[in-house]
Write a protein that binds this DNA or RNA. Structure first.
Length: 251
DNA sequence: AACCAGGACGTGA
DNA sequence: TCACGTCATGGT
């Protein structure tokens, strides 16, 4: 009987995680993450901000995503990181050798708007150094978890940043867990707010099809929804998902 | 005018 | 392991 209940709960959870995704997609539509600056081939024609929904990434765009993943740590994308990315492009700094060669203070000044600029300048240099020895194509060809372990060795790259890079820059199917993911799903009683990162990630990956597109869209939608209903000053009980599913969450 | 954002790391207990 | 302090800009 107890085992039966567990099985039923697992099935419910499986459906529930997908249902939440579908609800969010219906509410907000495709988010087209990760925002990327298109390369127009013509010099001097750099757009004033990265745009959403780019397909068929080239290596420079992948690198921009990796830099963006560092720059957005504990910082708003818009306008702070957006400006920094645009400045990097204007100075033609989206390049491994360029980042390695540039003076620390100059780099820090270019990315100033993203905050923590001294740390982040060091981290961009660290990851550029790493990528000089481990090419993007090498990483792309590598096993998902193997590549993850490599990234996690780099100072400044924690689990969320590593997973963002794997998912959005290297297009590998891994689920990104961030603060909004924690707040939303702990509010829905599917996890506890300070559950272990890997445990939360496993819940999603065990119960959803492991697809790059699904995971990429899901995380983006959670951020979108989180910004709307789960900022610290907000009242979590106003979340429409909670109203909709109140009492129906067996777990 | 505090408070917070798509974290991660170092330190001391 | 855990609870803090640190890093810093720009918007509300």
């Amino acid at each position: 009987m107890q085992i039966l209940c567990i099985i039923i709960n697992m099935e419910n959870q499986k459906k529930f995680l997908l249902k939440i995704y579908e609800d969010l997609f219906e509410m907000y539509g495709s988010q087209g993450w990760w925002p990327v600056t298109p390369l127009c081939g013509c010099s001097g024609d750099i757009p004033d901000k990265p745009i959403y929904g780019i397909k068929g990434l080239n290596d420079k765009q992948r690198l921009e995503i990796i830099f963006g993943a560092i720059l957005t740590q504990n910082t708003q994308w818009s306008p702070n990181v957006e400006k920094a990315i645009t400045e990097l492009n204007k100075k033609d700094m989206i390049g491994i050798k360029k980042i390695i060669a540039v003076n620390h203070d100059i780099l820090a000044n270019i990315i100033k708007s993203s905050g923590f600029f001294n740390q982040k300048a060091d981290r961009l240099k660290d990851i550029a150094e790493f990528l000089r020895n481990n090419s993007l194509s090498k990483l792309k060809g590598m096993d998902l978890w193997q590549a993850r372990e490599l990234l996690l060795v780099i100072k400044g790259i924690g689990k969320e940043t590593a997973d963002s890079i794997l998912l959005y820059a290297l297009e590998k199917p891994i689920f990104v867990v961030d603060a909004y993911t924690r707040r939303i799903f702990s509010n829905l009683k599917l996890i506890k707010i300070d559950d272990n990162y890997d445990k939360i990630q496993k819940m999603f990956m065990d119960n959803l099809d492991n697809e790059v597109k699904l995971f990429g869209e899901y995380h983006a939608l959670l951020v979108k929804h989180g910004k709307r209903f789960y900022q610290k000053k907000y009242d979590n009980s106003k979340c429409p998902l909670l109203r909709k599913y109140a009492g129906n969450l067996s777990l």
